[in-house]
Structure formats: C-alpha cells, structure tokens
Write a protein that binds this DNA or RNA. Structure first.
Lengths: 233, 233
DNA sequence: ACAAAAGTGTTTGGAATACACCCATGC
DNA sequence: GCATGGGTGTATTCCAAACACTTTTGT
C-alpha cells in the first residue's frame, strides 16, 4: 500500500539537498571522502556525502550535519561551493543540491566506522572513481575553488594537524596546486605572512636533520579573516 | 473556499526561488535594478527582482527568465552568487533563494515599462533604500563579489556600451572599486591586457580634446574566458 | 661515510606605484 | 584666451622567480 503523502503545496517544489566535498590531507596526498551508495540509483557507485535539507535548518547547517554524521568532526572549515540545479541531475526527480566544501585535519581525527549500509573511504584526488549523479562536476568545481582559495587565503592550516613542519606545509600546497614549489621561495613567503609560530620541539627519530615544528597563529588568522586577506603563494 | 493544494510529497520541502542583482553603469554611477513590492510582506519596500523556480528550469534559467521579464535583455553576463537559506528569511514560510548577479549595459538598452503593479527603478549603489527580506545581505555580497571579480577578470566590458572612451572605462572601475585610480597607470594596465581595439571614431562636440573610442576584442576575451584569466587592476 | 631531508641568500627581471605637463577642442 | 578633460613617460620600489650548498641526524 502506498504511503500517504502528507506535505502538500499549491505549486510543485523541487527537493532540496546538500552535498559535501570533504577534503583531508594525510601528509602526502590530498584526499576526499566518498560514500559508496547502498541503494539505487547508482547503487554501488561512489558519491559525496549528502542528504535532504530539513525544514528547521539552513543549508549550511544541513551540510554540517552531514559532516558530523560522516566524520564526527566539529568546528571545521566549511564554505558554500555552488548550487547545482540541472533539471535532470537526479533520476529520481527534481532535486536541487547546494554543495559545500570542508577542510579537515585527517591525521588527528578519524572518520566514523562505516555503518552497515554505507561504506565511507578517503580517496586521493589524483585517483577518484567514477561518481554518481553530477558529482564529477561538483568535484571539479571544488578542486578549482580550493586551488584558487589557497593562493590568497591561508586555508591550508585547516588541513594540517596542530603542529607541523614547513616541509609538510609545502607538500600540502604542492598537492593542492598540483605543482612543484621552490623551497626557499615558499619559506620566504610563508614567513612574510607572519602567521606561524616556531615551537621549541623538533622532529625525533628521523634519519636526517630534525625539522622544527610550527604552529599556526590563530589569533592573527582570525583578525585577518574578518577583514579579508591579501597574500599570495 | 480554500484552493486545493495539488502537489504532495512524503517530506516537507522548502520553496525555491531566485533573486537577481542586476548591475548597470550609466557612465557616472554604478546602479542596481530594484522592484517595489506591490503586495505583502514588505509591501511598498524595494527588493531585487526574483521569483519561484519552475520544475522545468534550472536556477540559472529561472534567473535569466527574471532578467528578461524585467529588462527585456538577453545574452547578458550572469553568474551564480550564493544561496540564501536562513530558516526565517521569508515571513511567508521556508523559502530558499539562489541569488545571481548580472551585468548589463545600461546606456544602450532600457528596462521594460513597469507593468501595473510593480515599479522598477535603477538606484545608485551609493544610495540604496532599505530592502525587503534579507536583500541587504544579498546586496552586500554582490558588491563584494563584483569588486573582487573586476580585479582579475575584465567583466567591466559587460557594463559598457559597444564603444567607449578610456576615461569611461576608468570611471567604471572607480565606481565599482570605490577608489580613485591613476590615469596613466590605469591606461598602462588596460593596454597590457591587449583586449581593446582603438576605433577611428572620436568624440564629437565636447569642450575639450576629443577622446578616441575603443571597442572591446570579443574574440580574445572569449579565448581567455575559457582558460581563466590572470590580470589585475 | 653516506643517505636524506633541513635550512639558508642573492641576483635578476618585471610589475606596481608615484608623479606633472602639453594638447586639442568649444565657447 | 581660457576652461576642460585627453593623452603621454620615467624613476623607484617591491615582489617573484631562479638557483646550490652546508648542516644535522640515524644507520
């Protein structure tokens, strides 16, 4: 027997969902979190975590809820990416999706165990499987945005652990921008930003000269965030 | 008797609308098009043109439809701005709005005559009335985006007539960026972009040395648009 | 001693900025 | 002839890019 449809309107309405491109960095590669779909359509294929927007939450709250459900992380960087609304983007019917992208620190936190039906996995951005719906388009746009963003806003820190070496920071930039950077020039520019604090602590048990750890000056960062930045890599 | 509500769903859905921030330039001031609301809520107040998204159109098509209905312009620059989804942004109920911004050439085209109920008017961005809904927020974001955009993409041409003088172009940049620019440096940079074609024609009946008209090299522009730019004012 | 990454300066070219005067035109 | 905006060049400063060797550490 068919379930009763209880929510009725004078005019038809598209369904509204959010999808979340969650970027993480493990020290070597830039990754995104994908969910394997357990049901049709696109059963078995990978997609970004997402879901329908509830009536008592904004789309940003909806995206944060998805993020929490998939990663158990809170207080992460999240930003609206784009709204995808092609009439035929979802075979189930008209679904408009507001995509967000998030930056999380992959080393210090771990994702929730994949619950029964759906499997979650981090994929290197260099090696993404075929994605469900129009998620390839979402992915391309997210990569493009992240590349643009990191050039003039120090969002890299959102992806790194509390303390990190300058080389780790450089690897991150190289992974995002997909280019090789010059070590000396990179350090010069990072130092000029004046957002790093050098720690006493150094690497241990490494087979080479131990690198200093740095942390990131949250105070200065937040002072800048409110105004808008002006720095470039 | 209450009208029958014909469109029913298993779960509640927000209504989905688009709003369009239409920028124009009249040679002196940067303007936006506002509509005076004829009905409650916010009756009599000004707001950006907008409306509900239909089931057979994307949000971009919806925004273009609004634009056509208000300005009778086609083929104008339009870009998605942001999706506004605060739960309480519309007193009538849950309405999520995808905002777009458009750049039109105000001198060569005129807006449609205001039909019966609603009055449309261009307002200088320096002198905007109190706006309905959360449209002040939309406006601030649109201004911010336009300022950022014009620094590295030559979108200024979208706002100018076919032929224009270099001073007109400079006034436009100054109106958008809300700063004064140095004439010689501005011209140097514009020339370096190599997107302008100097015309034979000069100004007439001006009480000073006649300025050359320029037009804008659409071919080169489109070649660049496909790749992404790299120029700054 | 050697392998492996850390750390460090200088030079060069190009772009951004600051700045002032003569020119053509209409009245 | 004068008021008005059009049009032009140079000097300086700053930033970006290119580039190679010494240091420290563990094995």
């Amino acid at each position: 027997m068919e379930k009763e449809k209880k929510y009725c309107y004078d005019y038809p309405r598209p369904a509204l969902s959010t999808d979340c491109v969650i970027f993480g960095f493990d020290g070597l590669a830039l990754k995104v979190l994908l969910i394997q779909r357990g049901i049709e359509p696109y059963k078995g294929m990978w997609a970004f975590p997402g879901g329908f927007v509830q009536m008592n939450e904004s789309t940003e709250e909806s995206a944060k809820r998805e993020l929490r459900e998939e990663t158990a992380l809170q207080d992460v960087f999240i930003e609206q990416l784009y709204t995808f609304s092609d009439v035929a983007r979802d075979p189930r019917g008209r679904v408009v999706s507001v995509a967000y992208f998030a930056l999380v620190n992959l080393k210090e936190h771990t994702i929730k165990a994949g619950d029964d039906a759906k499997k979650a996995e981090w994929f290197s951005v260099k090696n993404i499987p075929t994605l469900a719906f129009d998620h390839e388009k979402i992915f391309r746009m997210a990569m493009y945005r992240l590349k643009g963003k990191i050039r003039y806003q120090p969002v890299g820190f959102e992806l790194l652990p509390e303390k990190f070496t300058l080389s780790e920071l450089q690897y991150l930039y190289e992974a995002i921008l997909e280019i090789k950077l010059d070590k000396r020039n990179f350090r010069k520019k990072i130092k000029k930003m004046d957002l790093l604090i050098e720690l006493e602590e150094k690497q241990k048990n490494v087979q080479h000269k131990a690198a200093s750890y740095y942390k990131f000056d949250k105070q200065k960062y937040e002072a800048l965030t409110s105004k808008g930045f002006n720095f470039e890599i």
